[in-house]
C-alpha cells in the first residue's frame, strides 16, 4: 500500500492549540519570565463555546490540516501558501461596517462583535468545489444576529460580503487571479438561516489568519468559496451581487453554488469527494448533508439553471 494511514493522534492534538501556535513566542517569553521569576499569564482562549444542536457528530479533521490546507488566494494559490504567509495579516484594529438597505448603518469594532452573542461551537462539514472536504469545529454566532444590529429594510433581498485587501500583507493580490476585493453574496433568507454563521474561531480558539481571521462567513451547505474570509464590509442590496468567482468564470461558478452531487462543475464531477485524511472517496450529499434544514429555501427552483 502506497498511502499510509494518518496517525491516530495529530501532534496538534497532543499540544494545546494555543501553545502549538505560539510555541516560539512561548519559549521566548518563558525564558524572560524565568528571569523575572514568574510565568506568563495563560493566553485567554475564546472557547470552547456552547455546544449546538446543529453540530454533526462526524470526527473533526485534525487541526494541522484545517489550518495547513487552505484556499485563500490573497496569500497565494497553493494550498500551503496561506499557512506560510498569512501570519502578516493585520487583524487588529479591525472594523466591520454594515450598510446599504438598512435602517441603522453600523460600524463595529471586532471587540464589540465578539460580545454580540455567546459563542457556539458548530461542528460542520466543509465541501470544497475542488472535490475535497473536512469537518471543522467552528466557533461563532449566527449571521442573523449580526445583521439584526443594522435592522435590514424590507426592500433588502441580498447580502454582499466584502473582504479585506491589504496589499502590503497579501502577496496574492498583486496578481489578477480574481477581482479584488474578494466578494461573496447570499440571498437575505439564506443569510438569516440559523446554519449560516460568522466564525471567529475554530478548535476552541481564535481563527488562524489563514482560515479568515478575525471573522469570516461559514455557510456549510454551499461550496467552501462562498464562505468569505476576513470580512470588512457587509452590504444589503435589492439586486443579486456579482461575486468574484462569478466574474472569474460565469459558466463555472453560479451565485448559489449549493453543494449538489447532481450538478457537475463543467470541468469535473461533483458526485464524490475526498474527506481529508481518508483514502477512499465518499459520495457527496445533497446540500452537503443539510438538505433537511435548507431544502425549503430552494423549493420550486431549477437547481441546474440556478447553480
Amino acid at each position: 500500500m502506497l498511502i499510509r494511514r494518518p496517525h491516530d493522534i495529530a501532534p496538534s492534538d497532543v499540544t494545546p492549540r494555543a501553545l502549538f501556535d505560539r510555541r516560539r513566542e512561548f519559549l521566548r517569553l518563558s525564558a524572560g519570565a524565568a528571569l523575572a521569576g514568574m510565568m506568563p499569564a495563560a493566553q485567554a482562549k475564546l472557547g470552547p463555546g456552547r455546544p449546538s444542536a446543529l453540530s454533526i457528530s462526524e470526527a473533526p479533521t485534525p487541526f494541522k490540516h484545517v489550518a495547513g490546507y487552505n484556499n485563500y488566494y490573497e496569500f497565494g494559490t497553493d494550498k500551503e501558501d496561506p499557512a506560510r504567509t498569512a501570519h502578516a495579516l493585520r487583524v487588529r484594529p479591525w472594523t466591520l461596517s454594515i450598510e446599504g438597505l438598512v435602517k441603522q448603518p453600523k460600524t463595529l469594532g471586532i471587540e464589540d462583535i465578539l460580545k454580540l452573542a455567546p459563542l457556539e461551537e458548530r461542528i460542520y462539514r466543509m465541501r470544497c468545489v475542488e472535490g475535497w472536504s473536512m469537518v471543522i469545529p467552528w466557533l461563532g454566532f449566527p449571521v442573523a444576529t449580526l445583521l439584526k444590529q443594522a435592522e435590514p429594510l424590507g426592500s433588502a433581498k441580498y447580502v454582499e460580503f466584502i473582504t479585506a485587501v491589504q496589499p502590503e500583507t497579501m502577496p496574492g493580490v498583486r496578481s489578477r487571479v480574481l477581482d479584488w476585493p474578494y466578494v461573496e453574496g447570499l440571498r437575505l433568507d439564506e443569510a438569516m438561516h440559523p446554519l449560516a454563521i460568522i466564525a471567529v474561531g475554530l478548535y476552541g480558539d481564535v481563527l488562524p489568519n489563514q482560515n479568515g481571521a478575525p471573522l469570516r462567513l461559514v455557510v456549510p451547505w454551499k461550496y467552501g468559496f462562498k464562505s468569505g474570509k476576513s470580512i470588512v464590509r457587509i452590504r444589503l442590496t435589492d439586486s443579486e451581487p456579482r461575486t468574484s468567482w462569478m466574474k472569474a468564470g460565469p459558466r463555472e461558478y453560479g451565485f448559489y453554488s449549493n453543494v449538489n452531487p447532481e450538478v457537475d462543475h463543467p470541468r469535473w464531477s461533483q458526485a464524490t469527494e475526498r474527506r481529508i485524511g481518508e483514502f477512499s472517496k465518499r459520495k457527496t450529499l445533497m446540500f452537503n448533508g443539510y438538505a433537511e434544514q435548507v431544502g425549503q429555501l430552494y423549493a420550486g427552483m431549477d437547481l441546474r439553471k440556478q447553480f
Binding site: 502506497l2 499510509r4 494518518p6 494541522k64 490540516h65 490546507y69 494550498k79 500551503e80 475526498r274 483514502f279
Partner: peptide, 18 residues
Amino acid sequence: YVWGAQADTLGANPIEAV
C-alpha cells in the same frame, strides 16, 4: 513521492499531491 507517502510529508491531501 513513495518516501513522502510513507513518512506522511505530502500534506493534507497526499493522494492529490502524488
